[in-house]
Amino acid sequence: MLDEKIKSIHSEFKKEISGADNQKIIDEIRIKYLSRNGLVSVLFEELKSAPKEEKPLLGKRLNELRNSVTLMFEEAKEKVDASEKFSEHKIDLSLNGIARSIGSKHVLTQTLDEIKNIFKGMGFSVALGPELESDYYNFEALNFPHDHPARDMQDTYFINDNFLLRTHTTPVQVRIMEKQEPPVRAIMPGRVYRNEAVSARSYCMFHQVDGIYVDTNVNFAELKATLVSFAKQFYGSELKYRFRPSFFPFTEPSAEMDITCFLCHGSGCKICKGSGWLEILGCGMVDPNVFKSVNYDSEKYTGYAFGMGIERIGLLKYGIDDIRIYFENDLRFLKQF
C-alpha cells in the first residue's frame, strides 16, 4: 500500500517538476509535496500505522523519496532562478518605476524651519505661547496704553474687553521674561491674527517670528550685526541692507530693516514699489517700560528685540502673488514645495 503510494508520488512529482519553468509553479510544487502538510510529510504520518515488520524498509524508502524529491526540487528551482536571471534583458527598463509616495511640509513651515535653524545656530532658544491671549500680554505689558493710537497699528480681533487673538508673537517675550532672569535669548515663532479684510495682499492671520536678547551688555550694534548675519544667511551673502528709524511701542530706539530688492537689485520695480528696497523686519532696543512690567532693572539690563512675517518672505521668494493660497491647502499647491 504505502509502497505503491511512494512510487506513484515519486513519478507524479517527476512529471510535475519537469514542467516547472517559473517561480510560481515551483512554489506550488513546494507546498504540494514538501510543506508541513504536503504529500511527503503525510506519508511519514502513515508510516506510524504500518505493520511493525515493514517499518524499517518503508522508512528507508520514504527517506529515499524525500531525499530524491528534495534534490530534484532544488535542481529545478536553481534552473528557474538561472533562467529568470538570464532573461533579464526582457525587462522593459523604460517602464515607470514603482513609486512610493512621500508628503511634504507646508511651505510656511519650511521657511520657518530655515529661520529657526539660523537663529538656533546663533544660540537662540525656541519658545511658544498661546494664540488666544490677554490684553495685558498682547498690549499693556508691551507698552501699548489703553486708548492710544499705537493700538491702531494692529487691527485686533477681540474676544471681549480682556481677551483677544494675539496680533503678534511679542507677548511670548513677556511670558519668558516673567519666568526667567537674564540672560534671555530666544525666538518665538507662531501664528498671529489681524482684523483685516481678506484680499490678495492681506489675510486675517499670518505667521511671525519674534526674537529677544536681554543681558547686561546688549546694544544696538550687536542687534545690527545679528540681523545682518541672519539676513545674509537667509537671503544670500551679497545683499545690501539698511536700518531706518521706526516706531514700535515695545522698543526704543526702533528700526526697520530693508534689504536690496532681489528682483530688481535696487533699481526699482513693482514689488519694491520703485524704491529698490524691501522691508524685511522690525526691531529695536527693548523699551524700559517692558522691563518694568517684568521686573527687570532697566539700568542693569539692556536688550534687543525683532520680529518678522513669514508669509511675506514666501511671496517674495517664490513669486506667490496671492496670500490666500497659503491657506487654501489645494493639493496642487502643497505638492509644489
Binding site: 509616495s101 507646508h106 494664540e131 486675517c204 492671520m205 491657506f327 493639493l331
Partner: peptide
C-alpha cells in the same frame, strides 16, 4: 508616511 501638511484658518 506620505502626508502633506496644511495650514488652515482657525476662524
Amino acid at each position: 508616511l506620505g502626508f502633506f501638511e496644511m495650514i488652515n484658518n482657525p476662524l
